[in-house]
Simulated assay, not measured.
Amino acid sequence: MSDRLDMTVMYATHNKLRRELTHIARATARFDSDPRYILRVGADWEMFRRALAAHQSSEDDALWPPLRQALAGNPFDLARLEAREAEHAALISLVGAINGALTAPGVELHLFGELVEALLSGLIGHLAHEEDTVFPLVQSALSADLWGHFRHVHAVRVGPYAPQLLPWLLDGADDRTVSFVLASFPAPARQAYEHRWRRSSRTTV
């Protein structure tokens, strides 16, 4: 049986976040370079950070509240949702600590590496928990209108960075995912992606 709500964009975002942070963690774990320099001069960390912030803030503002209301009276499912919200807070704290460590004097390299590894472990676990426990709740409890509102909010949050984030997100995605994600954006954004953003991203990202 197919899902009632299409979650292609969510899975595409999750998969890209996993791949990108895994790449970042490997780059910063190299013994022949300063990981802080890699994150400061490369675009990967900034793109990852922006994408994660847009994704999490959209869930915090437009997904968790209506889902919590839909689950009222079911304490077990509400507890599962609250656990995912707590994971959000932990990830935000780790991202902030890494950003601070990029410029703070005297931060030892091993501590910086521990922060990146903690973020990777936390993110992979959180995304798996969302897919295993929250996505089924969304499918069973959330209306199509509320799901559509969340998708709209997510697209708006990405909007200011769309010229960079959209090619980044769709890099390596299959044709169905590319088509579906693009369909969630207005026609001018789709045209800009096809004719300008995707081309420029090959040299700037």
Rank of each mutant, 00 (worst) to 15 (best):
M7Y: 03
D32R: 03
P75M: 08
V138F: 07
D77C: 10
A101G: 06
S143A: 12
A25N: 13
R49M: 02
F76T: 09
A79Q: 11
S33W: 05
T133R: 12
R30P: 07
D60K: 13
Q139K: 06
R68Q: 14
S140M: 07
E117A: 15
L109T: 15
L123R: 03
S140R: 12
P105V: 05
A89R: 13
L127M: 12
G113W: 03
R80E: 12
R40D: 00
I24G: 04
T8H: 09
A141T: 07
S33R: 14
M47S: 13
A118H: 07
A54D: 12
L120E: 11
M7F: 04
N99R: 00
E131I: 07
G96I: 02
A27M: 13
E114C: 06
E87R: 08
S143L: 07
L120G: 02
T22E: 13
R40L: 01
F76D: 10
L127F: 09
P65R: 11
G100A: 02
I92S: 10
E82A: 14
F48Q: 04
D34P: 00
P75G: 09
M10H: 07
D6H: 07
L81R: 11
P136N: 09
A101N: 00
F135A: 14
L17Q: 08
T22D: 13
L119T: 08
I124Q: 13
L91K: 11
H55R: 02
S58K: 06
G100W: 00
P35Q: 04
L109V: 12
N74E: 13
L94V: 05
L127C: 10
I38L: 15
L119D: 03
W45N: 00
L67Q: 07
L21E: 05
I38H: 04
G100F: 00
N99C: 00
R18H: 05
A25K: 11
F76V: 11
A29Y: 03
S143T: 15
K16H: 06
A141S: 14
A43D: 12
H55T: 10
S93T: 14
A51R: 08
R50I: 09
G113I: 04
H126A: 13
A27I: 04
L111G: 01
H129W: 04
Y37V: 14
A144L: 10
R49Y: 01
A79W: 05
E87M: 14
A83Q: 11
D44M: 06
P66M: 04
F135K: 08
R36L: 01
H110L: 07
G42F: 02
P105C: 10
F48S: 06
A12Y: 06
F48V: 02
S58L: 09
M47F: 08
E85G: 03
P66N: 01
L63M: 14
Y37D: 15
N74H: 06
L127A: 09
V41M: 05
V95P: 00
Y11T: 10
